[in-house]
Design a protein around this nucleic acid. Structure first.
Lengths: 338, 338
DNA sequence: CTGTTAGCGCGTTCAC
DNA sequence: GTGAACGCGCTAACAG
């Protein structure tokens, strides 16, 4: 709990010298620097981030605002962010909306504004105009990851292309009767990814002159349980059945697989299933999917922000992060039934 | 970006009055208080947490140190912590070891020590004696959640009892040939939960005079893929086959279900499966399990720490958090084969 | 290469 | 009920 002057006094040098030595700034002889390091180590001295912030204007911390932590994409992206920050000596401050829109106001008008962070990452959120204004007023360097906000730069995959490639894969296999399993709005926290993917689905279907049947547009809220139930209803419905389902997330695709299994519908013989994500379970379950890498996206976004904090010119338009079709056992040509 | 004196000047009062009014301290007339509030709102004033920290000694932030963010238990517990903190106006600083032991040293000797937090939560970690000493020296109020560290208080379920009840359930159904699927050490970050559960398994088996067969003690590293492969090897092995598997986490139990399905082993007729967690997928998949609630555990732990920060006497020994057997479709009496 | 000094923006005594 | 002044622990600008 020693302060900087404790170290300084112990060595008979000034606090400025200690500060410079410890931060690797020039203007300190190698000998002094070593003595300072040793003394700091000895005394267990670590600078106070608050005092350093006050004096320097930098908090050495980055904030992440997200809808909730306990969801595959968010947790993985957060891990990626943290990895990048660690490498740069930054700390991570997390603001979760906790799955409800309730405390948005509080977050935007209290926590975030307490000058605890140097930059802000928004994860998969849509903002109201007021919130956007509040954000711009703070003028932290900021970035969106995995979502689109008008007027903010975004890091993530090209959801249009990704969804479109999924459909192309199915169509290429010969499918014409394709159902779409839509994701939700993040438990009360609207975001724009689901609508992009759905729009891409519709567009691609239209391009191939394939019908988009309303009863085959089902909703799974990005969750296993809900997706399984929706898929079960789809499979139980009388009349025509789709030969393929495009689930707009892997977790929902798993729900489709579970429903198909319970209904005795063999995959891929009678039903092809494709997802988006390449969730950890996808490979062992043999799910064909469009892979994305949230950890990489988080790291990439954090590094972009860190570079700007270190004076790099803001990159106006970050490149799409890669996605890739991974073909496994859950998709195959449709089996004609006469 | 106005400071406290901006507000003070705008009203012709002193900064002390502004500070008192905004924090709800006594000694301010209702009228002045309201004028201050209005002006602060108007000017968009929010106190700097760093300055407040320096002046008051409190950061109004809590730190969480965990092995990695992107795992079911950790992410959910973190969400619970965040919920409790939000309610109390605290911020959350996350230190992830990122799945490797590499940066432990850095975390313990730099980040954590930068006086950014008022208290620290350790999630599922084991500490070296040196680390424990470093921690005690910091003398933050601290707590372990979901893991056991000698000398620190722990919040979590009674893993002994939980694992034991799982075995009792199987034994009660008539199973005598029970395999155990062990979890790993958190990707290089040792922790003590796996060994507790395994010990409880062995003890309970012994109590019932049931054999613990080495070839039925398999390892799944707490992950779906690894668990599925281990279970597949178990099912393929020549000779006797267990009638039940106790997986020490739900995610691993899912791996067993997947392997059983691929090998045409019907669950629960020829194989009963039980897990621990009550993961989101457990109900839709019909998995019998021992439920725990990591969100609640996180909230509970955070509230304990917050109470102590507000002067409550430290609770020496937090009560076990509840767990509960949830019986679903994956367990049944063994089917005798003659 | 090193030391001195002046704040950073607040909370907190004391006075009044 | 209110204000003036001090200091939290550090960095940055300037002197030497």
């Amino acid at each position: 709990m020693t302060g900087i002057d404790g170290v300084a006094r112990a060595l008979g040098v000034s606090t400025a010298t200690v500060s410079r030595a410890l931060r690797g700034l020039p203007g300190v002889s190698a000998a002094t620097r070593e003595r300072v390091r040793a003394a700091a180590e000895e005394l267990g001295y670590v600078p106070s981030s608050s005092a350093a912030h006050l004096a320097s204007g930098r908090t050495m911390a980055l904030g992440v605002l997200l809808p909730r932590i306990d969801e595959w994409y968010f947790a993985a992206a957060l891990e990626g962010v943290d990895r990048a920050l660690r490498a740069a000596g930054y700390d991570l401050v997390v603001f979760s909306l906790g799955g409800s829109g309730r405390n948005r106001e509080r977050v935007f008008h209290r926590s975030m504004l307490r000058k605890r962070i140097d930059a802000l990452l928004l994860m998969c959120l849509e903002l109201t105009p007021q919130e956007l204004a509040a954000l711009q007023q703070l003028d932290y360097p900021n970035l969106t990851v995995g979502g689109y906000v008008e007027g903010l730069r975004n890091v993530g995959i090209d959801d249009d292309a990704a969804a479109s490639e999924a459909v192309e894969h199915l169509v290429g296999l010969g499918h014409r009767k394709i159902a779409y399993l839509a994701g939700g709005d993040g438990h009360g926290v609207h975001f724009s990814v689901p609508s992009r993917r759905e729009a891409a689905f519709r567009r691609t279907m239209r391009r191939h002159r394939l019908p988009v049947r309303p009863e085959w547009m089902i909703f799974g809220d990005f969750r296993f349980g809900a997706a399984k139930e929706a898929a079960a209803r789809l499979l139980e419905a009388p009349g025509d059945r789709p030969t393929a389902v495009f689930a707009s997330s892997d977790e929902m695709a798993f729900g489709v697989l579970a429903a198909a299994q319970e209904h005795g519908v063999p995959v891929p013989q009678e039903l092809s299933v494709i997802g988006i994500d390449d969730h950890d379970f996808a490979a062992p379950l043999g799910l064909t999917t469009i892979r994305q890498d949230p950890r990489e996206q988080g790291s990439f976004a954090a590094e972009l922000l860190l570079a700007e904090l270190q004076g790099a010119p803001p990159q106006p338009d970050p490149p799409w992060r890669p996605h890739e079709l991974v073909i496994r056992r859950s998709t195959a040509p449709p089996q004609e039934k006469f």
